[in-house]
């Protein structure tokens, strides 16, 4: 189901729709993003200015574009927008499709396969805290 099938005047996205229903309405009932499943620490960064308004984009989409001027993880975006991570993943998928953001997955999703340099950098950083 594409967002375009929904006319603009459908205003189901108000707060009155309730906290449970709302995330699903915002994603037009989708629970999976258009591509892949973003990790909670996948980093999102905006690559162009948010539009004033754009068909198919909700205020939450715009908020994400604004929030991600500096790279921010999926988990942080979810926390800041107070929405479930699954909802945020769908919205990020939309923004990726429309080339508003870029997403970088975390390195090597296998345990014990990180390179030496990564450990050293993290250690140095922690010691300097």
């Amino acid at each position: 189901m594409s967002p375009e099938e929904f006319p603009e005047e459908e205003r189901w996205v108000d707060d009155e729709a309730g906290p449970v229903v709302r995330p699903y309405v915002m994603t037009y009932g989708r629970t999976q993003p258009t591509r892949g499943r973003f990790d909670l620490i996948s980093l999102v960064v905006s690559i162009r200015r948010p539009p004033a308004a754009e068909a198919g984009l909700h205020p939450e989409h715009i908020k994400i574009i604004r929030l991600c001027r500096d790279p921010m993880s999926v988990a942080e975006i979810a926390a800041h927008l107070d929405l479930p991570a699954g909802t945020i993943r769908v919205l990020i998928g939309d923004l990726l499709d429309r080339r508003y953001v870029e997403v970088q997955a975390p390195p090597a999703p296998r345990p014990n396969m990180h390179d030496e340099q990564l450990y050293k950098a993290v250690l140095d950083g922690l010691r300097a805290l």
Binding site: L40, I41, S42, L43, V45, I47, P71, S73, E102, Q104, P106, P107, H114, L118, V122
Partner: peptide, 9 residues
Amino acid sequence: RRKMPTAVK
């Protein structure tokens, strides 16, 4: 355009 940091957890 921009260098993204690496996220670890």
